[in-house]
């Protein structure tokens, strides 16, 4: 029995230590961030391209089908109450407030997050980060901060694209396939979706962007520098990010209702 308590105690201490280190790491990234916008803006732009533009196709394809399936579900269920005109509203609410930020963040973790983790992990495994240290260049500032900021900036933009393409998918299914009146479809959305709803989506996508990018660079920086270590870190990035995003989603939604 003592052994069980001992294990629980050791795990709790280890968790507290890791969580503390994680917070300090976040503060280090924040501390170096303002300087990057002044001196190395082009590096940030390059990372926005890597994290954002290269994720665009997957986000657009998924956005289209999520919007389309939302319209399918909404139409088939609303038709029972003769409320087909509300198909667009249902899709818009779901996309802007929930699925846009959440799905984009999960896709972001799977595409850009894993790329970040494995890139940084491999840099560590091949001594590139140590070489920077030896050249008196701070790898946190030179490698991690631009990648973190690139992810933070790219995420809300991707979420906006996801929602916009999703609405296009919903329009195709609702208006073109099921012949919902195009005026009603869009007017209902205009009348019902408020700026407050859009803001909720924006806030979520910013928070998810910070969380996903932070977890990705943290896992990469703390990789065990072996092939197996990089693989494990990449997997952890996806799993931890997905759980974190769903927990944060619940918390933000609860706070904003």
């Amino acid at each position: 029995m003592n052994r069980v308590f001992q294990d629980i105690y050791e795990n709790a201490v280890e968790f507290a230590r890791t969580f503390g280190a994680f917070q300090l790491f976040f503060l280090r990234l924040i501390r170096h961030s303002p300087g990057m916008f002044v001196g190395r803006f082009n590096v940030i732009v390059m990372q926005v391209y890597n994290a954002g533009a290269l994720s665009l196709v997957i986000v657009m394809v998924c956005g289209f089908f999520v919007g389309a399936v939302l319209a399918l579900q909404a139409y088939s269920n609303m038709a029972r109450f003769n409320a087909e005109d509300w198909t667009g509203v249902a899709a818009a609410f779901a996309l802007v407030k929930e699925l846009g930020p959440v799905m984009t963040a999960i896709l972001f973790a799977g595409r850009a997050g894993t790329a970040l983790t494995s890139e940084i992990g491999l840099m560590k495994a091949t001594d590139q980060l140590s070489a920077m240290e030896m050249m008196a260049v701070n790898p946190v500032k030179r490698v991690l901060v631009p990648r973190f900021l690139g992810g933070v900036i790219a995420m809300p933009l991707l979420a906006a694209v996801f929602s916009a393409i999703g609405m296009f998918g919903a329009h195709l299914v609702g208006v073109e396939l099921f012949q919902v009146d195009v005026g009603s479809f869009w007017q209902q959305i205009q009348l019902t979706v408020r700026m407050q709803d859009v803001n909720e989506g924006i806030i979520k996508s910013v928070v998810f962007g910070i969380a996903a990018s932070l977890i990705a660079v943290w896992e990469g920086y703390n990789t065990v520098p072996t092939a197996e270590g990089v693989g494990r870190a990449t997997t952890r990035t996806v799993v931890i990010t997905a759980i974190t995003i769903l927990v944060f989603d619940f918390m933000i939604t609860a706070a904003m209702i």
Binding site: M123, Q128, A131, M132, E133, M134, M135, A136
Partner: peptide, 14 residues
Amino acid sequence: RQRFGMLFQNGALL
């Protein structure tokens, strides 16, 4: 460290 130059075992090129 600016006074040091170090050649790593595997080169460690960026």
